[in-house]
Design a protein around this nucleic acid. Structure first.
Length: 296
RNA sequence: GGUGGGAUAUCCAAGUGGCUAAAGGAUGCAGACUGUAAAUCUGUCGAGUUUCACUCUUCAAGCGUUCGAAUCGCUUUCCCACCA
């Protein structure tokens, strides 16, 4: 396989075997790795996120990991910035780029616009938030409809986050939702200039299930519980995305309960499996796949 | 051996005569996706079919009361608790 300025994207659901595959791929192709994972960006969250240890990276440079403290907010716009810097530096050192990760929304930024850059003024944000707090969706949806010339926009009007976000945008720029939306769709992906080749890794369902349970057990052996205790005692407050990460959320709750470690393993594994399900749905339509590889 | 409590769909669990194929969870399946995305949200979830509708079989098992029962009575089986 020749690497001719293409940007290789390797994805697949959690625990499918991306890390190993990508490192081998990078070694073969004189490449560096850009992680595309919403949890690996957090420092001190290593075990529960299955972050590859420096020793296991086999000399391959990894980017976009350990970017922020667990107390800090991180979002797709920050990922795009970090990834752009990383990719620029790899390209300028005449190496190839392998993007690896399973965070669908972040991954989408390589193919489509994912943010529109509209600045939401504080007062607009406060207004919408307070209406939601007071009267919920019943208060917001009519406002959104009237902000769109009386037509209900084609969004999930039962999802508070979607509705609030849409309404904030309309109010912030004084335009209809249709306008905002058509402008958004016309934007380019921030990584438009690169030619992409996207590989989806897959694995037999039963095999994957087994790997997930084994991996969770291994995480506990490696000290997941201590890692969580460390986070809780060293940070006053963990960011939403850090404390909701699979493995962390369950362990935080587990520490307050009095069930067995076996129960914790089951719960983490179960929730990991749920994530797999969502990821598979995402990969079906949201991201263009060039090649599927079944690992065994 | 005695007394009391229980047995509800894949699992947990409401329901104490009609509005019940049966609340609510969970799991499963399907789906959405513009700044928390490992997030947030939606649909579906007894069986079958000609699937915006119709049919069939359900609430441990059997029998009974009733126009009508998951709900009331009796018997049997199993589980739990306490007493012997």
């Amino acid at each position: 396989m020749s690497m001719d300025g293409k940007l290789y994207v390797i994805t697949g659901c959690t625990a499918v075997g991306k890390t190993d595959y990508a490192i081998n791929f990078a070694i073969k192709n004189n490449a560096e790795i850009v992680s595309c994972d919403s949890s690996l960006v957090y420092k001190h969250m290593d075990i529960g996120t299955a972050k590859p240890k420096p020793v296991d990276r086999r000399g391959i440079e990894h980017h976009c990991m350990d970017l922020v403290e667990p107390s800090e907010k991180f979002d797709v716009s920050m990922f795009i910035e970090a990834a752009q810097i990383a990719i620029d530096s790899i390209v300028s050192s005449r190496k190839n780029v392998v993007v690896v990760g399973g965070s669908g929304f972040y991954l989408k930024s390589f193919y489509r616009p994912v943010i529109d850059g509209i600045k939401i003024p504080r007062n607009v944000s406060d207004l919408v938030n307070s209406i939601y707090a007071k009267s919920g969706l019943d208060g917001l949806v009519p406002m959104l409809i009237s902000a769109n010339d009386g037509i209900c926009p084609p969004i999930d009007t039962k999802n508070p986050r979607r509705v609030m976000s849409a309404l904030k945008r309309c109010l912030a720029c004084g335009r209809t939702f249709d306008d905002v939306q058509s402008n958004f769709i016309s934007l380019d992906s921030p990584f438009k200039q690169y030619q992409k080749y996207t590989i989806l890794l897959e694995r037999d369902r039963e095999d994957l299930k087994l790997r997930i349970w084994e991996r969770t057990k291994k995480m506990l052996c490696m000290g997941l519980i201590d890692e969580v205790k460390f986070l809780l005692s060293n940070y006053d407050q963990l960011s939403d995305s850090a404390k909701n990460a699979i493995g962390y959320r369950e362990t935080i709750n587990w520490l307050k309960s009095s069930t067995t470690e076996g129960a914790l393993i089951d719960e983490i594994s179960q929730n990991t499996l749920k994530l797999v399900k969502k990821q598979k749905t995402w990969f079906k339509k949201q991201i263009p796949i060039d090649e599927k590889i079944i690992l065994r």
